[in-house]
């Protein structure tokens, strides 16, 4: 198969970027999108040019490293539930023109070409995406029965691979699906209750500070999510946030005086 590629090239965050034309020739239909880029890059390298920088690691849809917007759709113009690395060329038309752009968001500055810096996600987790438990201090794992339904729903949320496609697909570059997924996982489990309110407030605060946009309930995020995480978790976060704000407002003085 042959393709015309229009690929975003940009040396670093501060340089201007532009689309560059590349021809992908004799691509096997069973190649993945990233393998197609590998083939193109081998050619680019042999011509003495610098290959197109793009991120990938596990290439089986679990690490969340690969991050391409293909024809305007993060992770490609296929169905939800797969990452770019699982997108195969047989799903494209022979001779098709394919636009390849990075995930676009102010909070995801471009590192080079198609690679973006998603450390904002790490900082959101740092703000509260954990249960504060010291190693070795845990009670027996079966001491705390958890209804299967809650555990399963928590797992739905926990499946997030942190790829950032939700941000890239959102017209507002909002990170609410990512943030709400981690929050949802922990707020559904009894282990997460002690810090639930504070976690909710802190993670949203960090999310805002990173410069992500606001959710306007478009649901592009869920539509492209490789793990098909439901926007219901955003609803849950919205609810938790207001509850936490009110509770926090009412108890803040008591907490402070108790310190």
């Amino acid at each position: 198969m042959n393709f015309h590629l229009k690929i975003w090239r940009q040396r670093d965050a501060n340089s201007p970027g532009q689309l560059e034309d590349h021809e992908a020739k004799d691509i096997p239909a069973s190649a993945s999108f990233l393998e197609m880029l590998d083939i193109v890059n081998e050619g680019v390298t042999m011509r003495g040019e610098e290959p197109i920088a793009h991120d990938s690691d596990c290439r089986e849809g679990i690490c969340g490293t690969c991050s391409l917007t293909i024809n305007g759709v993060p992770h490609g113009n296929n169905k939800a539930g797969i990452a770019t690395c699982q997108l195969h060329m047989r799903t494209f038309q022979d001779g098709e023109t394919i636009y390849v752009e990075p995930f676009r968001a102010k909070a995801f500055p471009i590192v080079r070409d198609l690679i973006v810096d998603r450390s904002a996600f790490d900082r959101i987790i740092q703000a509260g995406g954990y249960v504060s438990v010291r190693t070795g201090s845990a009670p027996d794992a079966n001491a705390l029965p958890i209804p299967k339904q809650s555990a399963d729903l928590a797992m739905d949320a926990a499946a997030c691979i942190g790829c950032g496609a939700c941000v890239a697909a959102c017209p507002n570059s909002s990170a609410m699906l990512f943030t709400s997924a981690k929050m949802g996982q922990l707020s559904l489990l009894p282990q997460g209750q002690a810090e639930r309110g504070r976690r909710t407030l802190a993670m949203v605060r960090q999310m805002d500070a990173e410069g992500f946009g606001n959710c306007s309930n478009v649901y592009n995020c869920s539509a492209v999510c490789p793990k098909e995480i439901s926007a219901s978790f955003i609803a849950r976060m919205n609810r938790d946030y207001m509850l936490a704000s009110v509770q926090d407002g009412l108890s803040a003085n008591e907490v402070r005086s108790g310190e």
Binding site: V133, A151, A158, Q191
Partner: peptide
């Protein structure tokens, strides 16, 4: 297992 459960790892349950 104790440690991971306490961290909120959503292991499969009965």
């Amino acid at each position: 297992i104790d440690q991971c459960v306490a961290q909120g790892v959503p292991f499969a349950r009965e």
